[in-house]
Design a protein around this nucleic acid. Structure first.
Lengths: 195, 195
DNA sequence: TTGCAAATAGAACCGTTGTTCGGTATATTG
DNA sequence: CAATATACCGAACAACGGTTCTATTTGCAA
């Protein structure tokens, strides 16, 4: 009997997070039991509880990790651009890219009703990436690139279509890859708000 | 002891549906037990199972009822209008109105991840109201009122902002009533797609 | 009234699930 | 090499929740 080649320490922790993401995004939080995660991750119940304390905190750790990573991706993507349109395009491009490359992440972070299992969590629209998007539009209004409309309306008009397209892609409704719609989506969003 | 004034028959059935809607939309499907519904609706377990068979079929009955009702509201709203813009505006106006008057319905029908508990259900974008919205845009493209873009993009561009505004309203983020944004939202959507 | 089917009641059942806990292995420190 | 803390293990547990089932009531037809 070779000694079990289970991961340990930080690797184990990450293994649990990866497995939880896969199962939560495929089946949903409530359709996934700790025992499911244990089995799929090839890890013990004790290890999971040692690292995370309970199921909700596991989900929260996962959510915080991924949201943070996404916020950084968005920030990095917009950094090189200065105009409002360029920044908006960069945000949508990055979101589309993530939706194709890491659909599970987008499924769990953007599409899940996380407030049903993370009781204290604020709505996702108050999270960092979404705040960044609103800020871009507010600056666009200030600089005159964007019409002077209610900031909430501007943000939803600019990004609402893109987010719904991501929804469709994640639901497997679209035949073409998401990128192929990028130009049209950005143009529509921009026409909606441009001065 | 007066005889229990519990509802019976069709009234009981409706009472269960109403209660289920309230609890599902407030706490989510998985945070609501049949026992919760039983208690809140002042009804027996047996009656619930007699009328609906099991929890999932109860949710499905509720979902089908509400989706059907919503589809009819949308259809009625668009009927008087012929131009694409007029129809789009009518759709958004009706959706905004429903979001304010029956937030629980919108919460459950549009915002819930119903595929997590209704396994066989197709994605909501293939439901009647959403199909109607896409059709309006396709007709707009055919008549030349709308630019010749991918129909999915056109539909999400026209209605994506409105749907996100509804999201914000249902999450309690907006300070003003939804109606007060109607003009701007419609204008943004229309600018996005108009020829 | 009698008989029968539908409707309602609610106690009990039992599989699932989140969690605990006593124990063992592994790492770290003096 | 002790000795101590950390990490991990997994059987066991208790509560919860969906469902079943038998008994009772109600409505209606004969």
């Amino acid at each position: 009997m070779t000694t079990s080649d289970r991961p340990r320490g930080a690797a184990l922790r990450q293994q649990v997070l990866d497995t939880a993401l896969a199962l939560f995004s495929q089946q949903g939080y409530f359709n996934t039991s700790i025992h499911d995660i244990r089995k799929e991750a090839n890890v013990s119940i004790g290890a999971i509880y040692h690292h995370f304390g309970n199921k909700e905190r596991l989900a929260k750790a996962l959510y915080d990790n991924l949201l943070e990573a996404m916020a950084e991706e968005v920030a990095n993507a917009t950094a090189p651009h200065h105009g409002c349109l360029g920044q908006c395009r960069a945000v949508i491009a990055v979101l589309f890219q993530l939706s194709e490359q890491q659909p599970q992440v987008m499924q769990f972070v953007l599409m899940a009703k996380h407030r049903e299992f993370l009781r204290e969590e604020p709505p996702i629209c108050s999270s960092r990436p979404f705040a960044a998007m609103r800020l871009i539009l507010e600056q666009g209004i200030a600089s005159g690139e964007v019409r002077n409309i209610e900031p909430w309306v501007a943000a939803t008009a600019m990004f609402g279509g893109a987010l719904r397209m991501m929804n469709l892609a994640l639901d497997g409704v679209l035949t073409q890859p998401l990128d192929s719609y990028l130009d049209e989506v950005v143009e529509c969003g921009w026409r909606a708000v441009q001065a």
